[in-house]
Amino acid sequence: MSLISVSHLIYKYNHQDTQNALDNITFNVDEGEWLSIIGPNGSGKSTLVKAIDGLIHINNENSVLINGQSYNKNANQIRSQIGMVFQNPDNQFIASTVEDDVAFGLENRNIDFNKMKTIVEQSLKLVGMYEYRDSKPENLSGGQKQRVALAGIISLKPRIILLDEATSMLDPNGKISMLNLIRKIKQKFHLTIISVTHDVNEVEYSNQTLILKHGKIINKAPSKRILLDANLLWKNGLDIPFYRKLIYQLKQKKIHVPSSIVSEKELLKWVIQSSLMT
């Protein structure tokens, strides 16, 4: 049995809407997988993640099953297994210090004080934010805030983490270090990850990629294969690798670039050799 199973999921925001926000979506995610969900703005990515997180009401309860259970019957049990990191870190803070914020979720679960202290400490150390435990969340940078949000989630020992454009507000270096951290945590706890993104770099971290358009799945394949298809990425709002754009421009100028070239390094080497030969 798959850990996450979505079958024939249909969702509308309003009854009057002629178009379904999610239109007959079916897919599975196995334990330990990292699935990217990509697609143009407005394709239904965030709605789909909300459905998996139980944040929107689904009419057919069996269309979203987590570990075989439905939200209608076992909402609390499911929620304890899922953590979600949102796009805007400012919207996720409740307490006035980093430490209290991480402790917030645990307090709600009636965990013994000393045990709670240990868990908070471990979680903050894991994300590299322990030295900021007494800081006010509002004084942290965007990347630091996302790390604290992640610590709060890890402290609750989830099996699944959902990332809704969690790195899109970070600068390029911040993105990479956040993604490396998520990969590390995923391996350490054998987590399952679903990330909504339109960042090519983030897709590279995942094993599987699902493409949504107008609320429908138009493709699901290993991420490696999706990343090779520049045209597919471009059409779906993702940036295509720079060297592909350059090859396209050169071909327009009747320069024949060998089709065996599949990286920027190889293109660079080819240009250097060809221009020094002439």
């Binding site: 143009p40 703005n41 796009q87 709002g237 993702l238 940036d239």
Partner: peptide
């Protein structure tokens, strides 16, 4: 343009 996809 932060947070938008390439088309956006």
């Amino acid at each position: 343009t932060a947070g938008l996809d390439q088309i956006g």
